[in-house]
Design a protein around this nucleic acid. Structure first.
Length: 804
DNA sequence: AGCACGCCGACT
DNA sequence: GTCGGCGTGCTC
């Protein structure tokens, strides 16, 4: 007898382990680890999806095993490597194994469950059953059903008059299209053409087209119909006459916005060559070493990546390159696809779930050797990886902020060990963690200090916004920035204006009584959305109309406060009416492809000023940009996160790198209320090392990363008292398990203490060496699993990226 | 999660 | 009595 260990799709603590199922005779040779299967689970007839983890000959289960009902895949969708990885990932992130397995796959491979009500044969004519089902044989249970209907279903079921059937749906489908092809060779086609009747014009056109495109068969029907204006009936006739055949083809859903032009290798500088040499040596020696490239903006890191990838490919191996989502611009993608052509798969958020599935299939079946993508691309099913690259290594988006809370860097390092390949981390502003590891020799540090072609660094000016002349100006744009913008536009050059994301929201405040309009569910201000003319909550989506009088004191002096991109856009339009301003923010880039469109328009010089938030700071390269203005450099400094300085430094260094890339000298103007802050001063001169030393000193003083590990434990409950009580219990539990070298902070309410009507409290654990902490946290999760039904949510975030 | 079982109070 | 509500424990 064959037995399969199956992890079932029930994300709870109690079911977070394999269940054994019997492999029926007829599936004996079919079921393999890594496959998805359908099994019944529980007392009822419930059917769910599960992943086969192991196959064995005997069972340790005392009861009777249920059989596997059906296989969902014909071939395994997860390799043994991925199955292994799921154990490690679940353990590291304190998540359910099923959640880990599912995040490794495209979302369409997640099962959809449906329930149908059907009458038990003896009760088909029962009045109530009839009233429920109407004329139909079965009725789908949906979430929109009224409470009365649900109650009726429950009662009828108790009376055994109806039963509920479960259906597991696999959403993953390849796109099928009808296409025509022919068995005839061109000579035979010409013969056919000659024997056509003279009035058969459509046939003639069709046969001619086939002759001309004989190398491009099969041709999709839709192409013939839409582009060539050859009707369906003509095609059918041709089929009848044995000229062609109609077949079904699987089509690759076309990813948008990719127009690769062939690009070639660039000549390397000495620094670049040395970097490539070191990486290539590691590839050749199958050495799972980690490199950290600390390279100033414009030092040509991408070229180093590309030439290293090429070497991996030459060795017959594949390569994985991770970039932050916002850097996945057409510019960057074209550079890679231009070099490696159709061997590349690009996974970005603009893909529809179907397109994503198609790309996944291409990787899985080995037709792709290079994968470029954001965080989740780290799970790309590549075989024989020769190199993994993580560009902009410091980016917080590499950490997923809901379960499983994994860091792509950690997953990459794990996979590199399996594949015996090097990992390259690259950044102009490495995270302190990585830079410190390089210091200790855990990573191999490579400096790239020179800009390609010796482009000079931009001239950076810091503007003190506390100065009278600046605060006297009515708006948010200082006279100096205004003047420079004016001159740049006049010279026919371009400028980028950056607005720091935090604090950009336009919220409503009454100037009479100080009242601010807040979300009734969450503790945050509502922000104004011009497009909808409504006030909206960024956390729960609650919206309400814009008030005209203050709800508190009835004064009419309620108005907008704060600086939004729309607001700055208005100010720019007033100050520089002749300049064309393009705005890029969450509102203007919501539509698919809108992001790329704006970048292209700016690149084509269809606008003079590009105004936006964080998203314009990264990886864009516009040769005509000579001026970068930062409206509010310090709003990230004021937030209560120990990474605030690091984030500010990174952002300012990145934007400053945008100016003066071509032969024109760049100019950067940074407006700030903290002109003496080291993060701002060091960023102005692009001096990472000085910043690193200063920041390390402060982290040391305050016992933070990288001197300490941090783990964040949070509790949420509808009732604030309950949440607080539970968090104190948690703290006592932790205290008992920790040595006195560790530091416990909290419980404290999160910055936004109420989200979606739940109160949040958090405890921060800072530690250097606590071998039992990991197990303790797992135990806590186990002990509190019963409480989740009482409305408690406990989340554990190992090495959190933000503490809010 | 979804289901059964068991216990409890409140009604045709 | 028995219907329906809710807490508890189990699912190969």
């Amino acid at each position: 007898m064959s037995v399969a260990e199956v992890v079932v799709d029930v994300p709870t603590m109690q079911t977070n382990r394999p269940f054994e199922y019997e492999i029926p005779e007829q599936l004996a040779d079919v079921v393999v680890p890594g496959m998805r299967v359908e099994v019944s689970f529980g007392r009822g007839k419930r059917k769910i999806q599960g992943f086969v983890m192991k196959i064995k000959d005997t069972s340790n289960f005392s009861g009777k095993l249920k059989p596997i009902d059906r296989v969902i895949d014909l071939r395994p969708v997860l390799t043994p490597e991925m199955l292994d990885l799921s154990y490690w990932l679940a353990d590291q992130t304190y998540s359910f194994q099923i959640s880990c397995l599912q995040t490794m796959l495209p979302s369409v491979m997640r099962a959809k469950y449906k329930q149908f009500v059907e009458a038990v044969p003896e009760f088909v004519d029962d009045a109530e059953v009839k009233s429920l089902l109407g004329d139909g044989e079965s009725l789908e249970i949906t979430s929109q059903m009224t409470d009365e209907t649900i109650q009726l279903i429950n009662r009828l079921r108790r009376q055994n008059k109806i039963e509920i059937n479960y259906v597991v749906e696999n959403q993953a489908r390849q796109l099928k299209r009808q296409a025509v092809t022919t068995n005839l060779n061109p000579i035979q086609l010409r013969e056919k053409r000659n024997s056509l009747r003279s009035n058969a014009k459509a046939q003639l056109k069709l046969v001619n087209y086939l002759i001309d495109n004989v190398d491009h068969l099969p041709i999709e029907m839709s192409e013939l119909e839409n582009d060539q204006d050859i009707g369906r009936s003509a095609i059918k006739t041709a089929e009848k006459n044995g000229i062609l055949e109609i077949i079904e083809v699987t089509k690759r859903r076309k990813p948008v916005g990719i127009t690769p032009e062939k690009t070639t290798k660039l000549a390397l500088t000495d620094e670049q060559q040395q970097a490539v040499d070191q990486i290539v040596t590691a590839i050749d020696q199958s050495n799972p070493e980690t490199f950290l490239i600390e390279g100033v903006t414009g030092s040509g890191k991408t070229e180093v990546y590309l030439q290293s990838i090429e070497q991996a490919l030459n060795q017959g191996r594949s390569a994985l390159m991770l970039v932050p989502e916002i850097s996945l611009t057409p510019q960057m993608v074209n550079r890679v696809t231009g070099r490696f052509g159709n061997k590349v798969a690009v996974l970005h958020s603009g893909l529809s779930s179907g397109e994503r599935y198609d790309e996944w299939t291409r990787i899985e079946n080995g037709s792709v050797k290079v994968v470029v993508g954001a965080r989740s691309a780290v799970f790309a099913p590549l075989k024989n990886i020769g190199l993994i690259i993580i560009d902009e290594e410091h980016e917080a988006s590499y950490k997923q902020d809901d379960n499983p809370r994994y860091h792509a860097r950690d997953v990459a390092l794990w996979r590199a060990k399996q594949h015996k390949c090097p990992v390259v981390l690259g950044s102009a502003t490495p995270s302190l963690e990585s830079r410190a590891r390089a210091q200790k020799g855990v990573y191999h540090l490579i400096y790239m200090k020179k800009r390609v072609n010796d482009h000079p660094l931009p001239h950076v000016q810091i503007i003190d916004m506390r100065d009278a002349e600046n605060s006297a100006a009515k708006g948010d744009i200082s006279p100096l920035l205004q003047d420079n913008l004016y001159r740049a536009v006049k010279r026919g050059e371009q400028a980028i204006v950056l607005l720091n994301r935090r604090g950009y929201s336009s919220f409503m405040m009454c100037r009479e009584c100080g009242f601010t309009l807040k979300c009734p569910n969450c503790d945050v201000s509502l922000t104004y959305h011009k497009d909808l003319s409504k006030m909206k909550c960024h956390y729960c989506g609650h919206e309400e109309p814009v008030p005209t009088v203050c709800p508190n004191c009835k004064s009419k002096k309620i108005g907008f406060y704060g600086t939004g991109t729309q607001n700055i856009e208005r100010q720019l339009n007033e100050l520089l009416p002749q300049a064309r301003v393009l705005r890029m923010d969450v509102d203007t880039t919501r539509r698919k492809g809108a992001h790329a469109k704006i970048i292209k328009a700016f690149g084509d010089h269809k606008a003079d000023i590009l105004l936006g938030t964080q998203m314009i700071a990264k990886g864009l390269d516009f040769p005509d940009v000579t001026l970068v203005g930062v409206i509010n450099a310090d709003t990230t400094l004021s937030i209560s996160d120990y990474r605030a300085s690091e984030r500010t430094f990174q952002l300012l260094t990145q934007v400053s790198g945008r100016a003066g890339r071509a032969d024109k000298e760049g100019h950067v103007i940074i407006q700030t209320f903290n002109p003496d802050h080291y993060a701002i001063k060091d960023a102005a001169v692009q001096d990472y090392e000085t910043f690193y030393k200063q920041e390390m000193y402060l982290r040391h003083q305050s016992n933070y990363t990288p001197y300490y590990f941090t783990t964040l434990v949070s509790v949420a409950h509808k009732d604030e008292g309950q949440a607080l009580k539970q968090s104190y219990w948690l703290k006592r539990q932790l205290q008992a398990a920790l040595s006195d070298h560790s530091i416990l902070l909290g419980p404290s309410p999160t910055m936004i203490s109420r989200k979606q009507n739940k109160y949040y409290y958090q405890i921060i654990v800072k530690y250097k060496n606590e071998p039992q902490l990991h197990q303790k946290l797992l135990d806590i999760l186990n002990d509190t699993q019963a409480d989740t039904k009482k409305g408690f949510t406990i989340a554990i975030d190992n090495e959190p990226q933000h503490i809010d």
